Amino acid sequence: MAQATTNTDFYPKAGVLTRISAWFWEAMATISENNPRLRRVRALQALSDAQLAELKIKREEIVHHVFKDVYYV
């Protein structure tokens, strides 16, 4: 005797607007994570305190240092 089964989705798929919204926010996150300034911040945060001292940057001033030409403080 032959038995046939079909695979069905047990979980309902998200609606079109939900999927578009998820794609949009994922794309925005990818764009922001690949920003050269944010990569520079991460690189400076990875340095030791001694290395930052050689660059004359305090750890708490890294973000201000990288974005100083964008924001007036």
Rank of each mutant, 00 (worst) to 15 (best):
A2C: 13
Q3N: 12
Q3A: 12
T5Q: 15
T5R: 15
T5N: 15
N7I: 12
Y11T: 14
P12Y: 04
A14Y: 07
A22R: 11
W23E: 11
W23D: 08
F24K: 11
W25R: 06
W25P: 00
E26H: 06
A27L: 10
M28G: 02
I31V: 13
I31T: 02
S32R: 15
S32G: 06
E33K: 13
E33Q: 13
N34E: 09
R40N: 05
V41L: 05
A43R: 09
A43T: 06
L44I: 08
L44G: 06
L44Y: 02
L44P: 01
Q45A: 07
Q45W: 11
Q45F: 12
A46L: 03
L47V: 00
L47S: 01
D49S: 10
A50P: 01
A50H: 06
Q51A: 12
L52W: 03
A53I: 01
K56L: 08
K56G: 07
K56T: 05
I57A: 03
E60G: 12
E60C: 11
E60Y: 10
E61A: 09
E61T: 05
I62W: 01
I62M: 05
V63T: 06
H65E: 12
H65L: 01
V66S: 05
F67R: 03
Y71W: 06
Y71C: 08
Y72I: 08
Y72S: 10
V73G: 11
V73K: 11
